[in-house]
Amino acid sequence: MNPHFRAFSFVDRITRLEPGVSAWGHYAVPAGVASFPISLAAEAVGQLAAWAAMAALDFQVRPVAGIAGRVGLFAPVQPGVGLELLADLKTVESDAVAYGGEVRIDGQTVVQLEDCVGPMVSVSEFDDPLAVRSRFELLRTNGATPGAFEGVAAIPLNRTGGERGHSSSARLEVPAVAPFFGDHFPRRPVFPGTLQMQANLELVSWLAAELMPPTPGVAWKPTALTDVKLRAFIAPKDTLELEAKVIAQSAESAIVAVETRRNQRLAGSARVVLKPMAAA
């Protein structure tokens, strides 16, 4: 089955649109997927913002993931739920879109994005411009048939080192072939930045499990990603070295700096805010 607009697309319908200003949309998380990582909910907002930005610039350019000032992670997203998406565009220009937004479930905000910037690239370099326009028309009218997403197969993260309770490192081998590459993007496959951030969150969760909790019965949980910056397009078969380091800790929070390197060069970075919460 053609993965385009199926394997890594998280907007089913654009319900309201002011091109270049704001957009509202909807996405139904398929009930059949094993899980829906919260980073994919953030991806959905980014994709909605991308549609609104592309529509404002006549589909000549499209934004890609670049910078997120803060991504608040308030609640997990379960398969089968409906996501209400909102993208609020601050500026749209030929070189970048600045936006924020959120994901709500039954009126409750589960993910919030602030101070995001998506650098623009040529649509035709990454995708078929006619197919993109036609998809937009579908999203604005009848909407796409929900349920196309079949999940993302687990990409193993192999621990390579670290110091217990202080740092942790791991290697991620980007697959050579995966359905999401056919959607992200058909003409130039790129390992999605949100999957890179999901891997970072997984690495941080290992580290968080080793951190001494401030009081018994609680555990450190990620509540936000800040200062997210993606510096390079990651291609199929790339090898990524991930590292997480605790850079501050108090009774109320812990901050973990995460870095992703490819060929020793920094490809992405972020900070993860951990808060003590009731242990599961």
Partner: peptide
């Protein structure tokens, strides 16, 4: 790098 220039400009704007 180029992404930092974008970041700096948006942060300065804010």
């Amino acid at each position: 790098e180029s992404i930092d220039f974008l970041d700096i400009v948006f942060r300065l704007e804010r």
